[in-house]
Design a protein around this nucleic acid. Structure first.
Lengths: 151, 151
DNA sequence: CACTTGAGTTCCAAAACAGAACTCACATAG
DNA sequence: CTATGTGAGTTCTGTTTTGGAACTCAAGTG
């Protein structure tokens, strides 16, 4: 399989990975959620080559994850902002952060702390069941083919 | 920045991405959670080259995400199983699946349905706050430097 | 003995990447 | 009006990483 075909797979993981399953793309998204918007800021923070950054941003725009917005007319300047589809990726980034925070800790502790504005407390993200609201564990989840399953 | 240096970054996203932030690696993990254990099964399901598959499995074992377990003595045969650290990645995969299910749907519907054994219902994963148990939104989360923040 | 299975290795050409320099449009300073 | 700076890329070159296919090895099967 090649990467330009992965969007056609039946699996939702494959289709999502086709959009965000690139090392740099995930780091770009992390920075987007931290408020980074401009080309040179991404480049300086990530240390990615400008070449690759331009390519990834273009793909994210094509996929509707980021929007290129003109923020100045003369000279024309654009920045990249999360769309609603892009913001919907927040749980993915939170899940990734949390795994790093709990399974790849350094002696110094966590690099970032998350505060929930709604309740005002520092928190960890917890994956729960939309029906009973209990925290999910891998073993408590059963997977069955759905209507869109492959033949 | 090159990939062999990313594990030293202060950011938890970077450290996690250094472990699982590869296209094939995420698909391998998806299959692990679906119960796939053997080299040839991964290869057939993913369509990845054997070369790359061997490399990714080796890295996952080195990282402690998978364990290589002998399941037959003569001839010696091994399979790959999730460790506890690996199972802790379940929320990441669930978040990815859910984004695909909701933002990259096909007319046919979802390829897989998830049932929560605890409550017996088909569900969606919901990211919630460990403190107040409310569902999280990107805008309700405030990020501040923690003890392990970079200088 | 010929064939199959599981789990990889080896080889080569094609694609992606890192690093650095270069472009372009405009703004500001001297 | 030349010199410098800024934001947002593009181009160039040499190194890595892939994709695809074939090959190996150890053991079991007909």
């Amino acid at each position: 399989m090649r990467w330009d075909e992965i969007g056609n797979e039946a699996c939702s993981v494959a289709r999502t990975v086709g959009v965000i399953g690139d090392r740099w793309t995930l780091l770009i998204l992390r920075d987007c959620f931290l408020g980074v918007r401009r080309f040179d800021d991404f480049q300086a923070r990530l240390g990615v080559t400008r070449h690759v950054l331009a390519d990834r941003l273009k793909k994210l725009v094509e996929e509707g994850i980021l929007a290129k917005v003109k923020y100045e007319d003369r000279p024309p300047r654009y920045d990249y902002r999360l769309t609603d589809d892009g913001r919907a990726l927040h749980p993915v980034i939170m899940a990734i952060v949390h795994w790093g925070d709990t399974h790849r800790v350094t002696k110094k502790g966590r690099p970032l702390l998350h505060t929930h504005k709604t309740c005002g407390h520092v928190f960890d993200p917890v994956m729960t069941c939309s029906h009973c609201a209990e925290p999910l564990t891998a073993r408590a989840v059963e997977v069955r083919p759905g209507p869109g399953a492959a033949a």
